[in-house]
Write a protein that binds this DNA or RNA. Structure first.
Length: 563
RNA sequence: GCGCCUGUAGCUCAGCUGGAUAGAGCAACGGCCUUCUAAGCCGUAGGUCCCGGGUUCGAAUCCCUGCAGGCGCGCCA
């Protein structure tokens, strides 16, 4: 039962317009006292040749109220509709109980694949705080699309190719030690890599050596390949830990090296279609008609580039997954790059170029300015994660000394705080990494949402709650209604989050539910003596806890039952 | 120079497919634990919605001109 649709249908006759259009006119008033839906009559003034307030009054007086709508009242140029609170409570809560973990989901994406390219780790480089946005945004979208019936394909487009691996081999052979690296992992690889750069400044011959080693990787030389694969293994083992903590997995790790033998096809095809042009020795696709610089496909030395590889990957993904959408969760710095090669794919005649989406996000910098390896002010993801967990552990010891599994919960809450933080605002906003901010657990934070969930669970536990018949007329007070409205808004938030590729819409929706519930919790005693009221409030508490868990699940934050 | 993005409370942000007095959190100040988890709740204070034009019955929201900041602009990814 969709009240908004019913109201739009009922308005159709007096307004003289189709219900579908009126549906889009309907808005939600700022305050619940003003009603649940508002219909602005200003646009009707011209066609109906009357003043908006008069039209509103007329509609309010004459409209046939649909089921579940209690009242229509004129206020200025608006008709405000007030729902029957019990009817709404019934509709919303029954849907929650009915759908359970699938609440807010649907099968709208049934049979359609969505490729999501995110995280994209570089081999032999550590994960740092800058990897957090792409990783958690991508992972959240992965779950959100799946929730809506799509089939998500998570792709970690590894940065696993390039001359730096020749350098790594040179560095390893000169200064590396297998055991030390096995023990110390990526940090040790970085150490010898840094040393390489220091030494190569003095001794340029090293670069020739490195080039030769990279050539041997390319040619499939056994020793070179073994080392290369080993670097990869060391790195992937380490990032796997971070992904494990974040609860993330990928369906494919096909990265740069994977497309090595797939770029010839792109070049040939571009040539065939007459899109390639020789310019200053390089093969380019001219995009001046689209007010963009040319897209370079082949360097003057014949080597391929980033764009070539991305086009090859897109073609491969289309063939392999037949995606309905292919998302690239990559920082906005690369906006032009994506616009360029998306255009090239379009010019190649592929209509699915429109399904390629650059899901861009702002950059992460430190309070002292941009992070850089050279400045040495890079914040490692591992350090942030452990700092958050440690701080959480201390708080638990202070606030819930009797809690079992303190470490487990500390991890859930600490990590949850970080993930929530990354998914609380629009993607495009730049982020200044600030320890104080990240480790603040008050207010609009992950721990707040988790706390609300744990609180609800606690009540249900103490009440020994058993689902049963609910008298929804007991849930018509302002606080209960606010919770119900917030819960009822969740499904639309999920859909909008998918449409805009903006996970924060889900986060904010969860936040709204939590705020409403905490107020309800404070104002209305749940375990009252009146059995009918108690049962109704417990049902509301149960529904709240379920929806918070679903929402947190979508954004990748754990929902502990105690904390 | 050109292109893209951003500009809302001291700080971080929501609101931006036009609508009713511009909303949160943090920070500040003041209240609320002998009732269900105080990681909570309530209150006070805090705003030229960057400036200026335009469209409209109505603009934080749409269009144009500026200003400020970020990012990018052929052989890196």
């Amino acid at each position: 039962m969709d009240f908004k649709q019913a109201i739009a249908a009922a308005l159709s006759t007096p307004a003289g317009l189709p219900a579908e259009e009126l549906y889009t006119w309907l808005e939600t008033p700022r305050s619940p006292e003003m009603g649940d839906y508002a219909f602005p009559c200003f646009k009707l003034a011209r066609t109906l040749k009357n003043a908006p307030p008069a039209i509103a009054a007329q509609i309010a007086a004459s409209i046939v109220l649909p089921q579940g709508v209690a009242k229509a009242a004129q206020a200025g140029g608006y008709v405000n509709f007030f729902l029957d609170k019990a009817a709404r409570a019934k509709a919303v809560l029954e849907r929650v109980f009915d759908e359970g973990e699938r609440y807010g989901g649907s099968d709208m994406g049934k049979g359609r694949n969505v490729c999501i390219d995110y995280s994209s780790v570089n081999i032999a480089k550590p994960l740092h705080i800058g990897h957090l946005p792409t990783t958690v945004i991508g992972a959240a979208l992965y779950r959100i699309y799946n929730h809506l019936g799509f089939h998500s394909v998570g792709i970690n487009h590894l940065g696993d190719w390039g001359t730096q691996f020749g350098k790594m081999i040179v560095a390893f052979k000169r200064w590396g030690d297998r055991d030390t690296i096995e023990q110390g992992g990526v940090d040790e690889l970085v150490k010898i890599y840094v040393r390489y750069h220091q030494e190569s400044d003095q001794n340029p011959a090293l670069d020739d050596e490195a080039r030769a080693w990279f050539k041997r990787i390319e040619d499939g030389d056994a020793e070179a390949l073994e080392l290369y694969e080993w670097f990869k293994e060391i790195t992937l083992k380490e990032v796997a830990q971070a992904y494990d903590i974040l609860g993330i997995r990928f369906d494919s790790y096909a990265g740069e090296s994977f497309y090595n033998d797939k770029m010839g096809r792109v070049v040939d095809e571009l040539k065939e279609k007459g899109l390639l042009k020789l310019d200053q020795g390089a093969q380019i696709v001219d995009l001046s008609d689209y007010k963009m610089p040319p897209c370079i496909i082949l360097r003057s030395d014949g080597a391929t580039l980033y764009a070539t590889r991305d086009i090859a990957a897109a073609l491969y993904r289309k063939d392999t997954y037949d995606f309905a959408r292919c998302l690239y969760v990559v920082a906005y710095q690369q906006d032009l790059h994506f616009r360029q090669w998306f255009k090239v794919v379009e010019l190649m005649g592929y209509d699915w170029a429109k399904d390629l989406v650059h899901v861009s996000f702002g950059m992460v910098s430190g309070t002292e300015g941009a992070f850089s390896t050279r400045k040495g002010n890079m914040v490692k993801l591992r350090d942030v994660l452990s700092a958050a967990c440690e701080k959480t552990y201390d708080i638990i010891c202070e606030k819930s000394p009797d809690l079992e599994d303190k470490e487990v919960v500390a991890k859930q809450v600490g990590v949850g705080a970080l993930v929530w933080n990354s998914l609380y605002n629009g993607r495009i906003k730049d982020v200044v990494f600030d320890w104080d901010l990240v480790l603040n657990f008050d207010g609009e934070t992950g721990p707040y949402a988790q706390y609300t969930h744990a609180r609800a669970c606690s009540v249900l536990r103490k009440a020994d709650y058993k689902p049963g018949a609910v008298d929804y007329a007991r849930l018509t007070d302002a606080e209960s209604s606010a919770v119900i409205v917030a819960i009822g808004a969740f499904p639309d938030a999920v859909v909008e989050a998918m449409e805009k590729n903006e996970p924060y819409l889900v986060t904010r929706s969860v936040m709204n539910i939590c705020t409403a519930f905490n107020k309800f919790y404070y104002e209305q005693r749940i375990m009252t003596d009146d059995a009918a009221v108690r049962q109704a409030r417990l049902a509301l508490t149960d529904a709240t806890r379920r929806v918070i868990a679903v929402g947190l699940g979508l954004i990748g934050v754990a929902a502990p039952e105690r904390m």
